[in-house]
Nucleic acid binder design. Structure first.
Lengths: 217, 217
DNA sequence: ATAAAAATTTAGGCTAGTCTAAATTTTTAG
DNA sequence: CTAAAAATTTAGACTAGCCTAAATTTTTAT
């Protein structure tokens, strides 16, 4: 059985590894976990002893099979709780991250199973992220970033890479909601921002920074 | 903001104070929290410094107003989550205590408010315990123990004092469910056990020990 | 009333997870 | 290729919460 802290490290290592490529660095972990590099090193030694990560001093870290299994279990819980908070309790998608961050650590297989059933076995969370299966598989999505789309394309907004309340609220204001389709009308040569037409007919500008954090189909 | 551990102590002090009369002893706390008396003393000093309890060495302990407010908040969360687990996820009443024990520590006023609304502002949890109000009041019930009833009386089963899975399952087997009425047919002079007729017509025997843990109206 | 028993507190120590400062290793720039 | 910079680890220390053993206070039984 792992502590909350260990679970958070495993989850963070998984997320960083799948965002960047390859090994995860001590400093990157320190930044995300809001601790110092020295503290991270301590924890890496511990997780390594428990065979949850592959760790060579100074060489970065990656999850073992068992470590990944645990990470996916935690991510599954997190995403199911987010669905619950939005679908059942009526929270908006920019309010649920921190609460789910706590709920994900509740230890009960039975609870997760029943919650999943209760929610109708959802495949995606409110941010469009796929929910790992109970068997421990992360579904593939094949999305690409809006920033990679070209002029004239019509694309469907599927997920966000950034979960901060500020970013999500910005999308709300811009009439960009998941599941809706936008048509790329122009890409500015000046700042690579996108001019798109939303499903409701509005024309909105999407900065390159925002476009890089929007996944489309 | 309190730690999980501090919250558990506050809750436990509240429960012990309202079960027994007057001050709560160090040993009683050690037993319920499954720690040693010395550890309890440490925590009492800490809670006392935080003005959450009135504490004089060797004299036992009781909650301050602020301490009681916090204790009731935690008990409110616990009981609301128990309702959720039973009503929405379909757990049985003997499975929910431990899970609610973890859920009660999730820190979000908004979450509790929305959960309460979602559940239809329930007044009692699955064990018949009243749910403290959002204003921090513990509703009075005026129940008495089945063990205090007399032959010939018909009483309605309202709540249980013991929450262990074993006890609750025993009630299930005995056809004793909350909300149902039983008629006291005989009280054994030998062992003070009760012979009662249940709502479905069954005659069952209730030991004195069980009768002391059943609240009726 | 007082000695034995029970309850409680104190003293000193342990682990998990964190920190700062210093030492070490790796990477990068010239 | 090597010196400076950056990244990482080690060393030593702190807090929360727990422990055991010993000391102290309160309660109980004669």
């Amino acid at each position: 059985m792992q502590s909350f802290t260990e679970e958070n490290y495993l989850k963070t290592i998984y997320n960083l590894a799948n965002r960047q490529q390859g090994e995860v660095s001590t400093n990157a972990l320190a930044e995300v976990t809001a601790t110092k590099a020295a503290s991270v090193t301590d924890m890496l030694r511990k997780l390594s002893e428990k065979q949850l990560i592959h760790y060579k001093k100074y060489q970065g870290v990656r999850l073992t099979e068992e470590g990944e299994r645990l990470a996916l279990q935690i991510i599954r819980r997190h995403r199911l709780w987010e669905v619950f908070l939005v679908e059942k309790l009526g929270f908006s998608w920019d309010q649920v991250h921190d609460i789910a961050e706590e709920l994900e650590h509740i230890r009960s297989e039975e609870l997760v199973t029943r919650l999943d059933t209760y929610l109708g076995n959802p495949q995606f969370d409110p941010h469009g992220d796929p929910i790992p299966t109970s068997a421990g598989q992360m579904p593939e999505t094949g999305y690409r970033k809006l920033s990679e789309a070209e002029v004239g394309e019509g694309v469907c907004l599927m997920a966000v890479l950034e979960h901060s309340a500020g970013f999500l609220q910005h999308l709300d204001y811009s009439d960009l909601s998941l599941g809706s389709t936008v048509i790329v009308q122009e890409i500015s040569a000046f700042d690579k921002s996108f001019r798109v037409q939303t499903e409701t007919g509005r024309t909105v500008f999407v900065s390159h920074e925002v476009a890089k954090n929007l996944l489309v189909n």
